[in-house]
Structures are given as structure tokens and as C-alpha cells.
Design a protein around this nucleic acid. Structure first.
Length: 556
RNA sequence: GCGCCUGUAGCUCAGUCGGAUAGAGCAACUGCCUUCUAAGCAGUAGGUCGCAGGUUCGAUUCCUGCCAGGCGCGCCA
């Protein structure tokens, strides 16, 4: 409906311009908004206000010209418009005819799971990198935020037509890995762990497991033994992360090994590529990338003066790898403690000859705090430091954890209240939304028992005239727009906020509009039409929850 | 010192092409179930949108400065 309305306005403007009633440039897109206030119609546009200046006319005069043009050229009825009015400084409020508004219902049902999808990002091949935790310990809260939001963003981008690869970068080389190996070995020997090593309880678990399956490692010469413990521990820990993420509903397409960047001369290849662009130089015995050419604070060392690779070497080669694997957009999701990397990653892209504003995007996730019993939880037995993903899921369940983490924009620090997430009331938005879905399913089960026919083919759109019905339908029609906007802005939380609105709107409808017959009444066409509306609503809630990776239960 | 993020109701937070009377949940108060799931709905109350300027028909939204809080500024990974 929306596009019909927009094009009707567009045509009206064109005609008015042709007949010299208006002198202005017609914008390519007519923006329709949903007014907050229902009295302002189903849609409203401020087009007359924005054109006022260049047309050199009062906004209200322009609005009148547009409306006259729509009237005299018979544009209203075909677009499903029943009424227009000019309001305030020059808004045009648009009211839809019942039947044309309700036409979205069968469309939703027949489109099913695909309703909300678009081709907005068709042709975009996106590398979505998130979590990328070091394989030296369990995933903690910061990772958890990305595990939820990143996965959801992947779903939203896919729904917008993009081809998305979810990627986890495994830092499987370097000092940290060696410290990790030494820590496990120390635990196996019952010796004190290295000063700056790893101290969580899980290190002992790893040591025990390795001892059990490979009792010989302990007796190897020290450096070999550390390496052996490192490699064995790394495999176990990575598998543990994989398993936990899997339980969480977050699945990666690629687990990319940092070590692999140094195999088959790939690093040299990527270095040559950067050299060819002219931003590599040597100084004080080290090899540098001149990232300051592109706004970074300082140049970065790739190969240290002792000949070893700096971490940044991997970053640069990794970027080259992504681009060579055919991705035309690389999205990095980083924790706030890494936001200092934004400049240098962008600079790598630019040094590789890419457009740092278009080919790379970096999303920063702010910190997550978790409170229970009114106090912040800081300690985790397992990790030795902060609470883990696994522990969070044990406490509140997968759905509540995922939902809560995805319903806030990532650039805001957030507080999770464990006690609240365990509540089954509308304090807890997950249950609020899921409950709406379960409620609809119950109504539909009962409708079936009544023999009420809510198939598309018997749907009569003229009957849904109640204010609550119209509001609900209007909101259902918004869903594709919400998903597209969420994809465009890389903000999956918009989907969450939308389904909360939708759930609320459904509950209001449910309260005021009886779906099923009362007592001995015989089912009417209105019962059917309302049941069909219920079915469409359930579909949209379910699609929305699915984009967040949260289940849509049929019973609660 | 420099950079990024944040500041909206008592609390937790929404509010991007700048739009009409700034919203939701909780907490407080008042109603609604012998009939669809009350895990729900309706109502009352609650605000100098951090502060001060600027841009314009119009600013919570854009720009500048300031104040407050969080985080980051290695030839570590």
C-alpha cells in the first residue's frame, strides 16, 4: 500500500509541475511516515514543507495543489486512499480504505517466512566477523553480546538479500598461546602458573583432560612439552567455544586461523600487495605500514626489528585475505576496549587500495554489566575473571539472554539484570513477545475447534474496520520497512523494538476485539477475518523473533 | 593531553533521511477475568531531552564550545 500511496503522490506532483502549478524539483523518493497520533491518518508526508522553499509557496498551498492534483487525476482510489487532509503547517495526512489496507494480510500469509525480506542488499557479499575470542579461555560477557548481536545482524542482512559469511578469527599464534600452553602444563605439574599466565579453574580441567588422553606430554623436554600442551589445550578450548556458541544458536561459516596467514607464503603475498600501493617502508630495522596516510594516529609496525611478526602483520594480511576471497564489504564487530583499532583497520583497507569508508565497516560494542540480587557479578569460577556465556545461559536461558542482548543498540553500555530476566512478566520483554505468539496460537487452535475458516481464500478484508484492527494491520505492514532499515543501519535491535510494539498492539486488539464466537453463537465471517488477522500477526512475530535467533513458542 | 562512546521520567532504556502534543517497561495509585492463555488490557501521575550558543518554517535529532561518566592511546597479543 505504501508504495502505491507514494507513487500516487509522485504522479500528482509530476502533473502539477507539468501544468505549471509548481516550480520545483520532485524528489526521487516520497517519504511516508507513520504518524504517532492516529488522528493524523495511516500515513503522513511532509513533502509540502520540504518543497516550500524552492517552490516559493506556502507549504499548505503546495499541499492543496498535491491533493487537488490527486483528486482531479483520479489517483486516490487506485492507491487505496479513502481520505486526505492538510494538517498543521502543511502535512498531508492520508487515510487508507479498509479493504486496501487489509490486503496486506493475505500477502503476509502467502509470503510466510519470507515476509519482511527484500532485495535491498542484493549483490553485497559481506564478511561478518564477530566474537573472535582468543582460544585460551571460555567466552565471556563481552563476547556474548556479539555472539547474539552479530548472529542477528547476519540474519537481518541476509533477509535484506545480502550474501553473508559469518567468520570467527582464531588468534592461534603468538605469545598468548605459549603462555596458555605453559599455564596448562604448570597445572598438570601442580606447579604455580606463570605470573602473567592464565589462572581460571578451566586451566586445571584442560590439564586433567590432556593428562588423561595424552599422559606422555608431561615428560617431554620443557619447550616441546609446553608446545604440546598448548596445541592440545587450544583444540579442546576451541571446541568448547564452538560447542557453547552452537548451543547459543550462533553458527559460524568460517573459523579463520591466524596461523594460516603465514602458510603458503600468504603473508609475503599480502605484504607485496601493500608495497605495490606504496605505503610500506623500512625504518629502524623494522617494516612499517604508513597508516598515517589515511588518518591513523601513528604508523604501525608489521615486522619487528628482530624479524618477528607484530600482531598488526596478521591484521593486515587478514584484511587482504578477506578481500581476495571476494567480499565486497567487510564488517568487523569489536568490543569497546578495541575501539582504538578502528583507525588502523580502516587505514589497512586504504593502504590496500580500497575505499575505507565503503569497503570496511567497524561496529563497536560497548560493555555489558550483569547484576544479580542488586549487585554486579564480577567473578566467575570458571574463567577466573568475569562471567561466561555458558553461565549466563544457565542462569536465564538462551532466549532471554539473546533477546536482551539484541534489543539495545550496541553503542550503548548496557546492564543485564538476571533477576528480571528470570521473571515471567512483561517486565521481561522476551516473555512479553513470546506470550503474544503463544496466545495467538491458542486462539487459532480454538478457532479450528469451532470450525472457523481462516484460509486466505475466504478472507473478507472489508470487515476489519475496528480501530484496534486497523492499528494492528498498519503495524504489520511496517515490518518489511523495519527489517530493511535494520539491515541498512546494521541495527538488529530495531527488529526487537518493533516486535515489542507489535505484541503490545496485538494484546490491545485481543482485549477489545473478540476473535472467537461467544457461547452458542455461530461463527461469522468476522470471526474468520479476525482469525486470519491473528494468523498474519503470528507470522510476523515469528519472523521477527527468528531474525533475533529467539524461539516462537506455540504454548507457554 | 589526544581519540571514540554515552548523558532523555525515580529506575532500565527507545526515539537516523530535522517534523505535529518526546515514548515503553518497572516502581506509585485506580479499574478490568463464572467465556479466546490476566505471562494480558485500560486509566492517573511523573520531563528545563546534561548545559550554553548556532543553522531554519521547525532541533532530543545537525554544527560548535563546555560539564559529567565509560573506554582506548605498545616494535603486547
Amino acid at each position: 500500500m505504501q508504495s502505491e500511496v507514494a507513487s500516487a503522490i509522485y504522479k500528482a506532483l509530476e502533473i502539477a509541475k507539468k501544468s505549471n502549478l509548481l516550480q520545483c524539483q520532485i524528489p526521487a523518493q516520497i517519504i511516508l511516515e507513520r504518524p504517532k497520533n492516529r488522528d493524523h491518518g495511516d500515513y503522513a508526508t511532509s513533502i509540502a514543507l520540504t518543497l516550500a522553499k524552492q517552490a516559493n509557496l506556502q507549504p499548505r498551498v503546495i499541499a492543496q495543489v498535491i491533493i487537488d492534483s490527486m483528486n482531479s487525476n483520479n489517483l486516490l482510489t487506485p492507491a487505496g486512499i479513502s481520505k486526505t487532509e492538510i494538517a498543521g503547517p502543511g502535512f498531508i495526512n492520508i487515510f487508507l480504505a479498509t479493504a486496501s489496507q487489509a490486503a496486506i494480510i493475505p500477502k503476509i500469509i502467502s509470503t510466510g517466512k519470507e515476509y519482511g525480506s527484500s532485495n535491498l542488499l542484493v549483490g553485497k557479499k559481506i564478511n561478518l566477523e564477530f566474537v573472535s575470542a582468543n582460544p585460551t579461555g571460555p567466552l565471556h560477557l563481552g563476547h556474548t553480546r556479539w555472539a547474539a548481536v552479530g548472529d542477528s545482524l547476519g540474519r537481518v542482512l541476509s533477509a535484506a538479500g545480502a550474501e553473508v559469511t559469518r567468520e570467527f578469527y582464531v588468534n592461534d599464534r603468538g605469545n598468548q598461546m605459549d603462555l596458555f600452553g605453559a599455564s596448562i602444563r604448570a597445572a598438570a605439574l601442580n606447579q604455580p602458573r606463570p605470573e602473567s599466565g592464565y589462572h581460571g579453574e578451566y586451566i586445571e580441567d584442560l590439564a586433567n583432560q590432556i593428562q588423561k588422553s595424552n599422559p606422555d606430554l608431561i615428560s617431554l623436554p620443557e619447550s616441546e612439552s609446553i608446545a604440546a600442551f598448548r596445541d592440545a589445550g587450544y583444540k579442546l578450548q576451541l571446541a568448547q567455544q564452538n560447542r557453547v556458541l552452537d548451543n547459543f544458536g550462533t553458527h559460524f561459516d568460517v573459523w579463520f586461523s591466524e596461523k594460516a596467514l603465514y602458510e603458503n607464503n600468504f603473508f609475503d603475498h599480502s605484504l607485496n600487495k601493500l608495497k605495490a600501493q606504496g605505503h610500506v617502508y623500512e625504518s629502524e630495522g623494522a617494516i612499517w605500514l604508513r597508516t598515517t596516510d589515511f588518518g591513523d594516529d601513528k604508523d604501525r609496525v608489521m615486522i619487528k626489528s628482530d624479524g618477528s611478526f607484530a600482531y598488526f602483520a596478521s591484521d593486515s594480511a587478514y584484511y587482504v585475505s578477506k578481500r581476495e576471497r571476494g567480499f565486497n564489504l567487510c564488517i568487523y564487530m569489536l568490543g569497546a576496549d578495541h575501539h582504538g583499532y578502528v583507525g588502523r583497520i580502516k587505514a589497512i583497507a586504504a593502504c590496500a587500495g580500497d575505499d575505507k569508508d565503503k569497503d570496511v565497516e567497524i561496529l563497536i560494542g560497548q560493555m555489558v554489566k550483569i547484576i544479580e540480587g542488586g549487585e554486579e557479578i564480577k567473578l566467575s569460577k570458571r574463567a577466573g575473571t568475569i562471567i561466561t556465556l555458558e553461565e549466563l545461559v544457565e542462569k536465564v536461558g538462551k532466549d532471554a539472554a539473546r533477546y536482551t542482548l539484541t534489543r539495545f543498540p550496541t553503542d550503548t553500555p548496557m546492564v543485564m539484570d538476571v533477576d528480571l530476566l528470570r521473571k515471567n512478566t512483561n517486565e521481561n520483554p522476551v516473555y512479553y513477545v513470546q506470550y503474544a505468539h503463544a496466545r495467538i496460537c491458542a486462539v487459532l487452535r480454538n478457532a479450528k475447534d469451532y470450525g472457523i475458516d481462516y484460509e486466505i481464500k475466504s478472507f473478507n478484508p472489508e470487515l476489519l474496520v475496528h480501530e484496534r484492527e486497523r492499528e494492528l494491520i498498519g503495524l504489520l505492514a511496517e515490518f518489511p520497512r523495519i527489517v530493511s532499515a535494520a539491515a541498512q543501519a546494521r541495527e538488529p535491535h530495531r527488529v526487537a523494538r518493533y516486535i515489542e510494539d507489535l505484541a503490545s498492539q496485538y494484546h490491545r486488539f485481543y482485549n477489545d476485539c473478540r476473535v472467537l464466537p461467544l457461547g452458542d453463537e455461530k461463527p461469522t465471517e468476522l470471526n474468520s477475518a479476525r482469525a486470519t488477522l491473528c494468523l498474519a500477526t503470528a507470522q510476523v512475530i515469528s519472523n521477527g523473533l527468528d531474525l533475533l535467533g529467539v524461539s516462537a513458542p506455540e504454548k507457554m
